[in-house]
């Protein structure tokens, strides 16, 4: 069975695996239930990333106040909210970059412990945390700030690989592949500096950097807010291609030949059927409802540190239950192309 989505008024089949096309060359068939759980063959019910009731206080105000959500392999979750709603903090906690004052984060079934220190106080002690860091990628808001202005693009894109000990030659090749995959000619742009690129190009390079390690979780934090309007389409197209599996060269791979870490169960479940590439999950943080439909399956609406609404895109946008969501929908500049 295939599911059809209407985007841009056209009917497309958008399978949820991002690598399956590469392996088989044909769209795989999955179903998605309205609640967003994927329960077909090849996907387990176990979520990839779970966040339970996290709380974070900044200067006696609760930036994040009891947020709970989960993310499954292969799905795309949008987190919407205005500035100050806590969405950035929540996602940082979810990806193990900040520690919550209370609450827990689970990655592939194992609890992520931010406070366990490894040798010499370096935060490397916890294996779940390490796995999360190793298998996640982030795209930041402002590419000119998140790319070192003194480094050339190729080097920035290859940095996550170099940090993992990949030798330069291989890292450079993979970086070039990543650049090509996001639509940047590696020969032309690889040797340039960030300030020589347009906003859209620089952000795409940042996306390439996030994808070059083949993450299982991709976080895009307001990826278009700092980009000029004319370049936003490029970013949107790139993200849509990621979501629909177009970026086959970069899809996450189950690490062949590597022994499963910790409990063998969760890994095998998420890896999908033998021989198939593991699907990537995406979290997109936005403050503009207009593009949600094009980028996400499920939506989380945050307001003042809490989740006020969550569900599939159709349900939340079509039948919002919370008045805040309603206000957001009314205020949004809806993309006329999406119904």
């Amino acid at each position: 069975m295939t599911v059809t989505y209407t985007t841009d008024g056209a009917e497309t089949t958008a399978p949820k695996t991002l690598g399956a096309q590469a392996a088989t060359g044909a769209p795989a068939s999955e179903t998605l239930e309205a609640s967003g759980r994927s329960e077909t063959s090849g996907f387990s019910a176990a979520p990839l990333l779970e966040v339970h009731d996290i709380v974070k206080e900044y200067r006696s105000a609760r930036a994040v106040d009891g947020v709970t959500f989960e993310l499954r392999a292969g799905e795309s979750l949008a987190i919407i909210g205005e500035s100050g709603s806590g969405k950035t903090t929540a996602t940082r906690i979810a990806l193990g970059l900040a520690s919550p004052d209370s609450g827990e984060v689970f990655y592939r079934g194992r609890r992520v412990d931010m406070h366990r220190r490894g040798f010499a106080g370096l935060r490397r002690g916890d294996s779940a945390l390490r796995a999360l860091r190793r298998e996640s990628g982030i795209v930041f808001q402002d590419p000119y700030a998140s790319l070192d202005p003194r480094w050339r693009i190729r080097r920035s894109v290859a940095e996550p690989l170099r940090a993992r000990g990949v030798p330069w030659c291989e890292a450079a090749e993979r970086a070039d592949a990543a650049l090509s995959a996001v639509g940047l000619d590696a020969d032309e742009y690889g040797g340039r500096f960030p300030q020589d690129l347009s906003g859209g190009q620089a952000q795409r390079a940042a996306i390439a950097r996030a994808l070059v390690i083949r993450p299982r979780v991709l976080l895009a934090d307001e990826p278009m807010s700092a980009i000029d309007v004319t370049s936003r389409l490029q970013i949107l197209d790139t993200l849509r291609a990621i979501r629909s599996g177009g970026l086959t060269a970069l899809a996450p791979r189950a690490e062949h030949g590597q022994a499963p870490q910790g409990a063998g169960g969760p890994d095998a479940a998420v890896a999908g059927p033998a021989g198939q590439d593991a699907p990537m999950a995406m979290i997109v943080v936005l403050h503009d409802l207009g593009i949600v439909r094009q980028l996400a399956d499920r939506v989380l609406v945050m307001h003042e540190g809490r989740v006020v609404e969550s569900g599939t895109v159709d349900r939340v946008l079509g039948h919002p239950r919370d008045p805040y969501t309603l206000r957001l929908i009314e205020a949004a500049t809806m993309d006329p192309a999406s119904d």
Binding site: L95, L97, L122, R130, R133, R134, S136, G137, I138, F140, D142, A145, S146, L147, D148, P149, S156, E159, P160, A163, R164, A206, R209, I213
Partner: peptide, 17 residues
């Protein structure tokens, strides 16, 4: 305190590097 250092940290780059 720049964002590219924060980004590098998020990709697992070690402090010395």
């Amino acid at each position: 305190t720049s964002q590219y250092v924060e980004a590098a940290r998020s990709y697992g780059v070690g402090e010395a590097r």
